[in-house]
Design a binder for these strands. Structure first.
Lengths: 203, 203
DNA sequence: CCTACCGATCGGTAGG
DNA sequence: CCTACCGATCGGTAGG
């Protein structure tokens, strides 16, 4: 009740703002976030929402990073300790599809939405989105490289193409789920990803 | 100079508003369209911009349909007279990739942007986006069905999966071009689409 | 198709 | 973290 809050309280408020902001932005886009609606949803004043961040852009960047953390937690953490290679790419596929089919954010894949929202603009948000997407594609490509060297994928496979295709399947799945509410799509995506990751013929 | 305009003039103005609106919306999104900026870009008053349409939503719907017309003109018109089947799907792939690599709209593929922008919302715009995307996927699937029946694609191919995968590759390509400015991506997409459309082994 | 205007909301700040 | 406020802009309308 007192206006004198502890640093702990301030941190809790900050966290709550980012969490609710992530939910809202997954639906309305990062640019669709507004301080006023956020304040209303949280029972705070607008000054209370923007204060901890200084500007809307800083808040948007934090919201984006929170969405990336959620993705990593759901898709990467479970496989991070597996040895790199084809079997880990198959495990990633499973978790990725599960993440999209049972998404913790109401608007589906945040990075995909943010990517199409910012890909034709300039500035820190575009750069942050590009870097997050870049890192994920690099992660996939690195595993594909290991798989090719180990003979688990055909020797003439282009590792960047594996990342490119898996990413495309994930975006197509995200659209099927969000735009068409098609619950047969996860199985389709599973088959498609398995085809991209088809094992090399034994010599 | 006279405020008394012909119906022809009125039509010209309407067309100009939709055209400039399509350019702007391809960058800022359909929701990012504003009457004020549109009026400014066109040298009109806000009333002059919104008047012919009655509401922003009607204008947004017309902008969306204009973007669909542009896509059809660039990707579909050139192949519409070819016989359906695998070779037409390959021709579509070529035109689709060319369209994305040398896009008439500054923001890249409008439908992809509109899809992620509206897929988590309700209303006429979401419905219109879904219908446009649905029609295109159905077109691809119908050609895949013909190709499978003709033995041009493997007999166990799922035609909906062909449409799903081609669409995913196109979205991945759109991202590579717009977000990463990666001009090696069109070739990658060509290889990926060719793989999806690999001919059935001759019996 | 214009001017002039409406209430609502935007991001953000001053001062406590 | 609040109240009270800022100028700017939003979509839209009245009246010509």
């Amino acid at each position: 009740m007192s206006p004198r809050h502890s640093a702990e309280d301030a941190q809790r408020t900050r966290t709550a703002i980012v969490e609710v902001g992530t939910q809202q932005a997954s639906i309305e886009g990062l640019d669709g976030l507004t301080i006023g609606r956020l304040a209303n949803a949280l029972g705070l004043s607008k000054a209370g929402v923007i204060g901890p961040f200084g500007s809307k852009e800083t808040l948007q960047l934090e919201v984006l990073h929170e969405a990336v953390r959620i993705f990593i937690r759901r898709v990467w953490k479970a496989v991070a300790n597996l040895p790199p290679g084809r079997s880990r790419l198959l495990a990633i596929s499973e978790h990725w599809i599960d993440y999209l089919a049972d998404c913790p954010l109401p608007g589906g894949c945040f990075i995909t939405t943010a990517s199409t929202e910012w890909d034709a603009r300039d500035g820190p948000l575009r750069d942050a989105v590009a870097e997050a997407q870049r890192r994920w594609l690099d992660t996939l490509r690195a595993d594909a490289e290991v798989a090719i060297r180990a003979g688990e994928l055909p020797g003439d496979t282009d590792p960047a193409e594996v990342a490119f295709e898996l990413n495309g399947i994930a975006m197509s799945l995200n659209q099927a789920i969000q735009l068409f509410r098609d619950d047969t799509a996860p199985d389709r995506a599973r088959r498609s990803m398995a085809r991209v990751l088809a094992a090399a013929e034994p010599q």
